[in-house]
């Protein structure tokens, strides 16, 4: 993990993530922004691999790229008039937006600097899926279940909202 090559890949990935994330925010073409988000999510998955979190990296690609992003694109394409290549978004409230983003950034930097992260020795990371599984159905079973129920409620609520009135 200490080698030049892996450092080079790390910084290249970081550049891709930041660049595409920036494009998502400032880009005017909505569909391009959505596809730029793919690169950002994928780059984050690469970081998970760097941290030895193999299961998390797989889940990141599966859920964010494969699920959420496809649905997001679907929504973008269907909510506007179909067959219109120029979906545009504009920049409004630049100053308050920049201000709040700067504040959040400062807060994050402060937290990262002040917390002792208990970093592990770098080395060949072991498999993580088994311990994650044990924790999910063991120590953290209740929060895990509450989260699932919450998601289920959100799902049913969404289905309820889009239902046509009158038809039962």
């Amino acid at each position: 993990m200490e080698s030049m090559g892996s450092a080079a890949i790390f910084y290249a990935t970081a550049a891709v993530v930041l660049g595409s994330a920036l494009y998502v925010v400032v880009g005017r073409n909505l569909v391009h922004s959505a596809f730029a988000l793919v690169a950002a999510f994928f780059g984050v998955a690469v970081f998970y691999v760097y941290l030895g979190a193999d299961f998390l990296a797989g889940a990141q690609v599966l859920i964010y790229v494969g699920g959420i992003l496809t649905l997001l694109l679907f929504g973008v394409m269907l909510t506007n008039r179909i067959y219109n290549l120029n979906l545009r978004s504009g920049a409004i409230q630049v100053v308050p937006g920049a201000l709040s983003a700067g504040l959040v950034f400062a807060l994050l930097v402060w937290i990262i600097q002040s917390v002792d992260w208990g970093a592990m020795d770098s080395g060949d990371p072991g498999p993580t899926s088994e311990s994650i599984g044990r924790l999910l159905v063991g120590d953290y079973l209740l929060p895990f279940e509450i989260a699932s129920v919450l998601l289920l409620i959100a799902l049913m609520g969404a289905a309820m909202l889009v239902r046509r009135r009158g038809s039962s």
Partner: peptide
């Protein structure tokens, strides 16, 4: 990994 990567095909 297989399930995750094949979902890129849809994109």
């Amino acid at each position: 990994y297989f399930i995750a990567i094949t979902s890129l095909g849809a994109l």
